[in-house]
Design a protein around this nucleic acid. Structure first.
Lengths: 125, 125
DNA sequence: GTGCATCAAATGCACAAGCATTAAATGTCC
DNA sequence: GGACATTTAATGCTTGTGCATTTGATGCAC
Protein backbone atom coordinates (compact mmCIF):
# COMPACT_ATOMS: atom_id res chain seq x y z
CA UNK A 1 0.00 0.00 0.00
CA UNK A 2 1.42 3.38 -1.02
CA UNK A 3 1.72 6.33 1.29
CA UNK A 4 -0.88 8.23 -0.68
CA UNK A 5 -3.37 5.42 -0.58
CA UNK A 6 -2.78 5.10 3.13
CA UNK A 7 -3.34 8.77 3.68
CA UNK A 8 -6.57 8.71 1.73
CA UNK A 9 -7.74 5.82 3.85
CA UNK A 10 -7.02 7.71 7.03
CA UNK A 11 -8.70 10.83 5.69
CA UNK A 12 -11.76 8.82 4.85
CA UNK A 13 -11.81 7.34 8.32
CA UNK A 14 -11.37 10.65 10.07
CA UNK A 15 -14.19 12.15 8.07
CA UNK A 16 -16.40 9.27 9.11
CA UNK A 17 -15.27 9.59 12.72
CA UNK A 18 -15.89 13.30 12.92
CA UNK A 19 -19.15 13.31 11.06
CA UNK A 20 -20.53 10.38 13.01
CA UNK A 21 -19.62 11.86 16.35
CA UNK A 22 -21.05 15.23 15.49
CA UNK A 23 -24.38 13.84 14.38
CA UNK A 24 -24.66 11.26 17.14
CA UNK A 25 -23.84 13.81 19.80
CA UNK A 26 -26.39 16.27 18.45
CA UNK A 27 -29.04 13.64 18.03
CA UNK A 28 -28.55 12.27 21.49
CA UNK A 29 -28.69 15.69 23.08
CA UNK A 30 -31.80 16.81 21.20
CA UNK A 31 -33.65 13.57 21.73
CA UNK A 32 -32.72 13.55 25.38
CA UNK A 33 -33.59 17.17 26.05
CA UNK A 34 -36.80 17.31 24.08
CA UNK A 35 -38.17 13.82 24.51
CA UNK A 36 -36.25 12.09 27.28
CA UNK A 37 -34.90 9.46 24.91
CA UNK A 38 -31.31 8.39 24.43
CA UNK A 39 -30.09 7.74 20.91
CA UNK A 40 -30.05 3.97 21.33
CA UNK A 41 -33.48 4.04 22.88
CA UNK A 42 -34.85 6.00 19.96
CA UNK A 43 -33.18 3.74 17.44
CA UNK A 44 -34.61 0.65 19.07
CA UNK A 45 -38.08 2.15 19.31
CA UNK A 46 -37.88 3.44 15.75
CA UNK A 47 -36.89 0.08 14.33
CA UNK A 48 -39.52 -1.69 16.38
CA UNK A 49 -42.32 0.56 15.21
CA UNK A 50 -41.21 0.81 11.62
CA UNK A 51 -41.00 -2.96 11.35
CA UNK A 52 -44.75 -2.90 11.02
CA UNK A 53 -44.97 -5.92 13.30
CA UNK A 54 -46.77 -5.45 16.57
CA UNK A 55 -44.23 -7.62 18.34
CA UNK A 56 -40.70 -8.78 17.70
CA UNK A 57 -38.34 -11.10 19.49
CA UNK A 58 -35.47 -9.40 21.24
CA UNK A 59 -33.18 -11.29 18.96
CA UNK A 60 -34.89 -10.08 15.80
CA UNK A 61 -34.92 -6.49 16.89
CA UNK A 62 -31.31 -6.67 17.96
CA UNK A 63 -30.33 -8.16 14.62
CA UNK A 64 -29.96 -4.98 12.60
CA UNK A 65 -28.85 -2.81 15.46
CA UNK A 66 -25.34 -1.73 16.15
CA UNK A 67 -25.28 -2.54 19.84
CA UNK A 68 -23.76 -5.42 21.72
CA UNK A 69 -26.22 -7.92 23.11
CA UNK A 70 -25.85 -6.63 26.65
CA UNK A 71 -26.21 -2.99 25.69
CA UNK A 72 -29.29 -3.84 23.68
CA UNK A 73 -30.80 -5.77 26.55
CA UNK A 74 -30.39 -2.80 28.84
CA UNK A 75 -31.72 -0.40 26.23
CA UNK A 76 -34.95 -2.34 26.01
CA UNK A 77 -35.04 -2.55 29.81
CA UNK A 78 -34.90 1.24 29.95
CA UNK A 79 -37.65 1.53 27.37
CA UNK A 80 -39.77 -0.84 29.41
CA UNK A 81 -39.09 1.03 32.63
CA UNK A 82 -40.24 4.20 30.86
CA UNK A 83 -43.44 2.45 29.82
CA UNK A 84 -42.69 2.74 26.12
CA UNK A 85 -42.50 -0.94 25.27
CA UNK A 86 -43.82 -4.10 26.85
CA UNK A 87 -42.13 -7.45 27.10
CA UNK A 88 -44.00 -10.72 26.97
CA UNK A 89 -42.93 -14.31 27.15
CA UNK A 90 -42.88 -16.28 23.95
CA UNK A 91 -44.72 -19.56 24.31
CA UNK A 92 -43.09 -21.27 21.37
CA UNK A 93 -39.64 -20.78 22.80
CA UNK A 94 -39.53 -19.91 26.44
CA UNK A 95 -36.02 -18.51 26.16
CA UNK A 96 -37.22 -15.76 23.88
CA UNK A 97 -39.08 -12.55 24.69
CA UNK A 98 -41.46 -10.55 22.59
CA UNK A 99 -41.09 -6.78 22.61
CA UNK A 100 -43.93 -4.56 21.54
CA UNK A 101 -44.52 -0.82 21.63
CA UNK A 102 -47.13 0.52 24.04
CA UNK A 103 -49.47 3.35 23.11
CA UNK A 104 -47.24 5.71 25.03
CA UNK A 105 -44.31 4.34 23.07
CA UNK A 106 -45.99 5.03 19.75
CA UNK A 107 -46.90 8.52 20.87
CA UNK A 108 -43.42 9.33 22.09
CA UNK A 109 -41.94 7.97 18.91
CA UNK A 110 -44.22 10.12 16.78
CA UNK A 111 -43.03 13.22 18.60
CA UNK A 112 -39.37 12.32 18.63
CA UNK A 113 -39.37 11.31 15.02
CA UNK A 114 -39.64 14.93 13.89
CA UNK A 115 -36.70 15.98 15.97
CA UNK A 116 -34.73 13.04 14.68
CA UNK A 117 -35.42 13.79 11.03
CA UNK A 118 -34.73 17.47 11.53
CA UNK A 119 -31.28 16.87 12.99
CA UNK A 120 -30.47 14.39 10.25
CA UNK A 121 -31.59 16.79 7.55
CA UNK A 122 -29.46 19.49 9.08
CA UNK A 123 -26.33 17.40 8.97
CA UNK A 124 -26.84 15.25 5.90
CA UNK A 125 -28.10 17.80 3.44
CA UNK B 1 -39.95 16.85 3.11
CA UNK B 2 -41.43 13.87 1.29
CA UNK B 3 -41.63 10.41 2.72
CA UNK B 4 -39.12 9.14 0.21
CA UNK B 5 -36.61 11.84 0.99
CA UNK B 6 -37.06 11.14 4.65
CA UNK B 7 -36.49 7.49 4.17
CA UNK B 8 -33.34 8.09 2.20
CA UNK B 9 -32.10 10.32 4.95
CA UNK B 10 -32.69 7.66 7.54
CA UNK B 11 -31.08 5.03 5.36
CA UNK B 12 -28.03 7.21 4.97
CA UNK B 13 -27.83 7.72 8.71
CA UNK B 14 -28.22 4.05 9.52
CA UNK B 15 -25.51 3.16 7.08
CA UNK B 16 -23.24 5.67 8.76
CA UNK B 17 -24.22 4.41 12.19
CA UNK B 18 -23.62 0.77 11.38
CA UNK B 19 -20.44 1.27 9.45
CA UNK B 20 -18.97 3.59 12.04
CA UNK B 21 -19.74 1.28 14.90
CA UNK B 22 -18.38 -1.75 13.13
CA UNK B 23 -15.09 -0.09 12.30
CA UNK B 24 -14.69 1.67 15.63
CA UNK B 25 -15.41 -1.50 17.55
CA UNK B 26 -12.95 -3.50 15.49
CA UNK B 27 -10.29 -0.84 15.69
CA UNK B 28 -10.65 -0.46 19.40
CA UNK B 29 -10.47 -4.17 20.02
CA UNK B 30 -7.45 -4.74 17.79
CA UNK B 31 -5.54 -1.75 19.09
CA UNK B 32 -6.33 -2.69 22.66
CA UNK B 33 -5.47 -6.37 22.32
CA UNK B 34 -2.34 -5.98 20.24
CA UNK B 35 -0.93 -2.71 21.53
CA UNK B 36 -2.73 -1.79 24.73
CA UNK B 37 -4.15 1.38 23.21
CA UNK B 38 -7.75 2.51 23.18
CA UNK B 39 -9.10 4.09 20.01
CA UNK B 40 -9.08 7.61 21.39
CA UNK B 41 -5.58 7.13 22.74
CA UNK B 42 -4.35 6.01 19.37
CA UNK B 43 -6.10 8.86 17.57
CA UNK B 44 -4.56 11.41 19.90
CA UNK B 45 -1.10 9.90 19.60
CA UNK B 46 -1.45 9.59 15.84
CA UNK B 47 -2.46 13.19 15.39
CA UNK B 48 0.28 14.38 17.71
CA UNK B 49 3.01 12.51 15.89
CA UNK B 50 1.74 13.21 12.40
CA UNK B 51 1.55 16.90 13.13
CA UNK B 52 5.31 16.95 12.64
CA UNK B 53 5.64 19.24 15.64
CA UNK B 54 7.56 17.93 18.59
CA UNK B 55 5.14 19.55 20.94
CA UNK B 56 1.60 20.85 20.79
CA UNK B 57 -0.65 22.63 23.21
CA UNK B 58 -3.48 20.54 24.57
CA UNK B 59 -5.84 22.96 22.96
CA UNK B 60 -4.28 22.62 19.52
CA UNK B 61 -4.25 18.87 19.65
CA UNK B 62 -7.82 18.77 20.87
CA UNK B 63 -8.91 21.07 18.07
CA UNK B 64 -9.39 18.53 15.33
CA UNK B 65 -10.43 15.70 17.58
CA UNK B 66 -13.94 14.49 18.10
CA UNK B 67 -13.85 14.30 21.87
CA UNK B 68 -15.27 16.57 24.51
CA UNK B 69 -12.74 18.65 26.38
CA UNK B 70 -12.95 16.48 29.48
CA UNK B 71 -12.66 13.21 27.60
CA UNK B 72 -9.66 14.55 25.75
CA UNK B 73 -8.01 15.66 28.95
CA UNK B 74 -8.37 12.20 30.41
CA UNK B 75 -7.17 10.55 27.22
CA UNK B 76 -3.92 12.48 27.37
CA UNK B 77 -3.67 11.68 31.07
CA UNK B 78 -3.86 7.98 30.23
CA UNK B 79 -1.20 8.37 27.55
CA UNK B 80 1.04 10.09 30.05
CA UNK B 81 0.45 7.47 32.70
CA UNK B 82 1.47 4.88 30.12
CA UNK B 83 4.66 6.83 29.44
CA UNK B 84 3.77 7.52 25.82
CA UNK B 85 3.57 11.29 25.99
CA UNK B 86 5.02 13.93 28.27
CA UNK B 87 3.38 17.12 29.46
CA UNK B 88 5.28 20.30 30.10
CA UNK B 89 4.29 23.74 31.23
CA UNK B 90 4.12 26.45 28.64
CA UNK B 91 6.00 29.55 29.73
CA UNK B 92 4.24 31.96 27.40
CA UNK B 93 0.86 31.10 28.83
CA UNK B 94 0.93 29.33 32.12
CA UNK B 95 -2.59 28.03 31.72
CA UNK B 96 -1.56 25.99 28.71
CA UNK B 97 0.30 22.67 28.59
CA UNK B 98 2.59 21.28 25.93
CA UNK B 99 2.17 17.65 25.00
CA UNK B 100 4.93 15.76 23.26
CA UNK B 101 5.48 12.13 22.35
CA UNK B 102 8.14 10.20 24.23
CA UNK B 103 10.44 7.71 22.48
CA UNK B 104 8.25 4.94 23.82
CA UNK B 105 5.27 6.78 22.40
CA UNK B 106 6.80 6.99 18.94
CA UNK B 107 7.72 3.32 19.07
CA UNK B 108 4.27 2.23 20.18
CA UNK B 109 2.69 4.38 17.53
CA UNK B 110 4.86 2.87 14.82
CA UNK B 111 3.70 -0.61 15.81
CA UNK B 112 0.05 0.25 16.22
CA UNK B 113 -0.06 2.18 13.00
CA UNK B 114 0.14 -0.98 10.94
CA UNK B 115 -2.74 -2.56 12.79
CA UNK B 116 -4.73 0.63 12.39
CA UNK B 117 -4.18 0.87 8.65
CA UNK B 118 -4.88 -2.81 8.18
CA UNK B 119 -8.26 -2.63 9.90
CA UNK B 120 -9.18 0.49 7.94
CA UNK B 121 -8.18 -1.10 4.65
CA UNK B 122 -10.25 -4.12 5.51
CA UNK B 123 -13.39 -2.08 6.07
CA UNK B 124 -12.99 0.81 3.65
CA UNK B 125 -11.84 -1.00 0.54
C1' DG C 1 -33.96 -40.53 29.11
C1' DT C 2 -29.00 -38.66 29.98
C1' DG C 3 -25.31 -35.76 28.87
C1' DC C 4 -23.62 -31.99 26.40
C1' DA C 5 -23.37 -28.27 23.14
C1' DT C 6 -26.05 -24.27 21.78
C1' DC C 7 -28.98 -20.40 22.12
C1' DA C 8 -31.68 -16.32 24.44
C1' DA C 9 -31.50 -12.88 27.59
C1' DA C 10 -29.85 -10.77 31.92
C1' DT C 11 -26.20 -9.29 35.08
C1' DG C 12 -21.55 -8.13 37.49
C1' DC C 13 -17.91 -5.41 36.48
C1' DA C 14 -14.62 -2.05 34.70
C1' DC C 15 -14.15 1.86 31.96
C1' DA C 16 -14.64 5.78 28.73
C1' DA C 17 -17.73 9.57 27.67
C1' DG C 18 -20.36 13.93 28.42
C1' DC C 19 -22.05 17.64 31.52
C1' DA C 20 -21.31 20.78 34.97
C1' DT C 21 -18.16 22.76 37.94
C1' DT C 22 -13.70 24.26 39.64
C1' DA C 23 -9.00 26.44 39.79
C1' DA C 24 -5.71 29.17 38.03
C1' DA C 25 -3.92 32.38 34.52
C1' DT C 26 -4.82 35.93 31.19
C1' DG C 27 -7.28 39.81 29.03
C1' DT C 28 -10.06 43.90 29.20
C1' DC C 29 -12.37 47.97 30.56
C1' DC C 30 -12.75 51.66 33.68
C1' DG D 1 -4.21 49.12 39.72
C1' DG D 2 -8.82 46.71 40.55
C1' DA D 3 -13.06 44.24 39.25
C1' DC D 4 -14.90 41.12 36.14
C1' DA D 5 -15.21 38.19 32.04
C1' DT D 6 -12.71 34.70 29.42
C1' DT D 7 -9.76 30.92 28.58
C1' DT D 8 -7.16 26.45 29.66
C1' DA D 9 -7.14 22.32 31.73
C1' DA D 10 -8.65 19.13 35.43
C1' DT D 11 -12.16 16.78 38.30
C1' DG D 12 -16.73 15.03 40.53
C1' DC D 13 -20.47 12.71 39.02
C1' DT D 14 -23.67 9.95 36.38
C1' DT D 15 -24.54 7.02 32.69
C1' DG D 16 -24.11 3.91 28.64
C1' DT D 17 -21.09 0.40 26.72
C1' DG D 18 -18.51 -3.97 26.00
C1' DC D 19 -16.69 -8.29 27.84
C1' DA D 20 -17.25 -12.20 30.41
C1' DT D 21 -20.20 -14.87 32.94
C1' DT D 22 -24.61 -16.69 34.47
C1' DT D 23 -29.26 -18.64 34.29
C1' DG D 24 -32.66 -21.16 31.82
C1' DA D 25 -34.51 -23.36 27.83
C1' DT D 26 -33.86 -26.10 23.54
C1' DG D 27 -31.77 -29.36 20.44
C1' DC D 28 -29.11 -33.29 19.46
C1' DA D 29 -26.45 -37.55 19.74
C1' DC D 30 -26.22 -41.82 21.83
Amino acid sequence: MSGTEEHELVEKWRTLLTSYNGIACDLDRELQDQHGLGLSEFEALDRLIESGQDKLRMHELAADMYLSQSAFSRTVARLERAGLVGRAMCMDDRRALFVSPTDAGRARHAEARDTHRKVLAHHLD
